[in-house]
Simulated scan of single mutants.
Amino acid sequence: MTVADAGHGPAPQPQPQPQPQPQRQDKRRSELTHFLKACRARVTPEDVGLPPGLRRRTPGLRREEVAQLAGVGVTWYTWLEQGRPINASEQVLSAVAGSLRLDPTERDHLFRLAGVRAVRPASPAHPHLDASTQVILDALAPLPAAVCNSRYDVLLHNSSYESLFGANPPAAPHGVFNSLWCTVTAPPCCNPFLNRDEELPRMVGVLRVAYGRHVGEPVWEGYIRELTLASAEFRELWARQEVAPARSARKVFRHPEVGELRFTAAYLTIPAAPEHYMVVYTPEGPQDRERTERMATLPARPVKCCHT
């Protein structure tokens, strides 16, 4: 079906899809519904050259306006947003993405949730990492460096990375040191991550993209559930349905002995371990480098709240 076909004549009939994993399919369709509604709500008629019209009960575009802009039938778009098992071509989904002004990351997320592109099989949470990986991390010191997965589990790290978060930081409920868990659960008075208000929405957006590849998987669903229960801030960010690309980022930490540390975090892929990456923190300026080198000579402090 082409975009032109979708906009004229009777609405296309829904075509049932094979459902080898019904529960996961249902969860994916529910996620698609919430994502499309959130995207539609943030686009105003003025954004896309439409008249504002009469008073609206909800913000953003109406379903019929998205359908009009995409050149598809209103019934077809409604079924898409409701998560019904219909056929959706790449061409038509691209038109919907354009109507909703989605960026490339959001567009890929939409395609994944709609099942148009093949979803990669789940990768193991803790793949076999060659012993040389730890050697590389240690050789990068005093630069903080670690190997993480797409859930922010920290699988390997060097001593400088440990110094930033403290010795024996609290593990997430699934028993693993997790940098996102530490970020959202550590109290503000003792949270080592200073620019978290700037970076946390991006981190959650990157997590949302990764989650799109694993909707319905018990490990992922349990992880998201625990985060939403543990942190109202995470719960609010997660509800926004925002997605973000993985990219270099600015990280600002505070260390109790050397002071503020500003880094650029670079993310390097690991071909042997899909959905895993090495993150390396590079000091921004001479003072940051000097403080990083001094931090590397100090033992990692134990993690505890100053109010306990």
Rank of each mutant, 00 (worst) to 15 (best):
G98P: 00
S99F: 11
L100F: 01
R101V: 06
L102N: 06
L102Y: 04
D103I: 05
D103S: 02
P104W: 00
P104K: 09
E106K: 10
E106R: 14
D108Y: 02
H109P: 02
H109D: 01
L113E: 05
G115Q: 11
G115S: 09
R117M: 10
R117D: 11
R117L: 13
A118T: 12
V119P: 04
R120Q: 07
A122E: 13
P124N: 08
H126F: 15
H126Q: 15
A131E: 11
T133F: 00
Q134G: 10
D138I: 14
D138K: 05
L140D: 01
P142V: 01
P142Q: 01
A145G: 07
A145L: 05
A146N: 02
A146G: 01
C148I: 11
C148A: 15
R151G: 01
Y152Q: 04
D153T: 08
V154K: 03
V154E: 01
L156R: 15
H157K: 02
Y161L: 02
Y161S: 05
Y161F: 15
L164K: 04
F165C: 03
G166Y: 01
A167E: 15
A167G: 06
P169N: 10
A171I: 13
P173D: 02
H174K: 09
S179Y: 04
L180V: 05
C182K: 11
C182L: 13
T185D: 09
T185Y: 12
A186H: 03
P188R: 15
C190H: 00
C190W: 00
N191S: 14
L194G: 00
N195T: 06
R196S: 14
D197S: 15
E199N: 05
L200Q: 09
G205L: 09
G205D: 12
G205M: 09
L207M: 13
R208G: 06
R208E: 13
V209A: 07
